[in-house]
Computed example of a mutant assay.
Amino acid sequence: MAELRTDRLILRRWEDSDLEPWAAMNADPEVREHLGDPLTREQSDASVARFQAGFAQRGYGWWAVEVRATGEFIGFAGLDQVDDGLPFTGIEIGWRLARSAWGHGYATEAALAGLAFGFETLDLPEILAVTTATNLRSQAVMRRIGMTRDPADDFDDPTAPEGPLRPNVLYRIARSARI
């Protein structure tokens, strides 16, 4: 599995020491605002097991993100296959950071590393990003990394309950846009 390094971050394999701060993030209602209900410790740990299985199967997925200067775990970023049941297919980029890591440019930095890996190593023709229509912070990151949105691609997530998590937006970036 590739480890990605940026000026300030390391995107790496998950470690046992990540489980506690990951669970704390997933129990934080503000972190989960655009994702659904907070997760139990068991659900959070199970998500890491799924991330590890994805890496074992494909060689990429959701990396744990740490700050190089301190070794602090701050969340995840990476690439994964679009969830089944959505009205499109492909590889999506994503990130989730602890509140203490918001506002430092870490999501943008990690996402740019993920895009580079997707285009240069995986030779993907296009990378997608999905979020709720109300998640303006993530949409701002999507625009900062060069992604664009066509409102005709917006959709209701069939896996989300009725309410604010159902309307979603889709952003895209083609490899040719980065060359």
Score class of each variant (00 low, 15 high):
residue 174 A to M: 15
residue 116 A to Q: 14
residue 32 R to P: 00
residue 87 P to Y: 02
residue 42 E to W: 04
residue 76 F to L: 13
residue 58 R to W: 15
residue 38 P to L: 09
residue 100 S to Q: 08
residue 17 S to N: 11
residue 165 L to F: 09
residue 28 D to T: 03
residue 130 V to P: 00
residue 137 R to S: 13
residue 119 F to W: 14
residue 39 L to K: 12
residue 114 G to A: 09
residue 92 E to Q: 08
residue 123 D to Q: 15
residue 26 N to Q: 11
residue 128 L to G: 01
residue 8 R to N: 06
residue 157 D to W: 02
residue 102 W to N: 01
residue 161 P to E: 10
residue 58 R to K: 12
residue 92 E to I: 03
residue 148 T to Q: 07
residue 1 M to W: 03
residue 51 F to N: 00
residue 159 T to I: 09
residue 129 A to C: 07
residue 141 V to K: 07
residue 120 E to D: 15
residue 126 E to C: 09
residue 28 D to M: 01
residue 154 D to I: 06
residue 133 A to V: 11
residue 143 R to C: 06
residue 148 T to S: 15
residue 174 A to Q: 12
residue 113 A to I: 02
residue 13 R to T: 14
residue 118 G to P: 09
residue 83 D to N: 13
residue 159 T to Q: 15
residue 147 M to Q: 10
residue 164 P to W: 06
residue 16 D to V: 05
residue 97 L to N: 00
residue 17 S to R: 15
residue 70 T to C: 05
residue 136 L to W: 12
residue 66 E to F: 01
residue 158 P to H: 08
residue 38 P to E: 12
residue 150 D to G: 06
residue 35 L to R: 12
residue 137 R to E: 10
residue 48 V to H: 09
residue 35 L to G: 08
residue 15 E to M: 15
residue 26 N to E: 03
residue 156 D to P: 07
residue 134 T to P: 01
residue 168 N to T: 07
residue 59 G to Q: 06
residue 101 A to K: 03
residue 81 Q to L: 13
residue 114 G to Q: 07
residue 63 W to V: 09
residue 158 P to G: 10
residue 136 L to S: 11
residue 171 Y to Q: 02
residue 154 D to M: 10
residue 28 D to Y: 00
residue 102 W to E: 03
residue 105 G to H: 02
residue 165 L to G: 06
residue 155 F to Y: 08
residue 93 I to M: 15
residue 105 G to T: 04
residue 121 T to C: 11
residue 154 D to G: 03
residue 36 G to S: 08
residue 132 T to N: 14
residue 24 A to R: 12
residue 6 T to S: 07
residue 56 A to P: 10
residue 128 L to K: 05
residue 72 E to D: 13
residue 137 R to H: 09
residue 8 R to D: 08
residue 10 I to P: 00
residue 162 E to Q: 10
residue 162 E to W: 09
residue 91 I to W: 02
residue 83 D to P: 09
residue 61 G to A: 11
residue 116 A to H: 13
residue 141 V to L: 13
residue 55 F to K: 08
residue 146 G to M: 07
residue 72 E to L: 10
residue 87 P to V: 05
residue 82 V to S: 10
residue 167 P to R: 00
residue 77 A to N: 05
residue 13 R to H: 13
residue 31 V to A: 02
residue 96 R to P: 05
residue 45 D to Q: 13
residue 22 W to A: 00
residue 167 P to Y: 00
residue 173 I to Y: 04
residue 32 R to K: 14
residue 16 D to E: 15
residue 65 V to P: 01
residue 141 V to S: 13
residue 75 G to V: 06
residue 4 L to K: 07
residue 27 A to L: 05
residue 83 D to V: 14
residue 122 L to V: 08
residue 101 A to G: 05
residue 165 L to E: 02
residue 120 E to H: 11
residue 55 F to H: 15
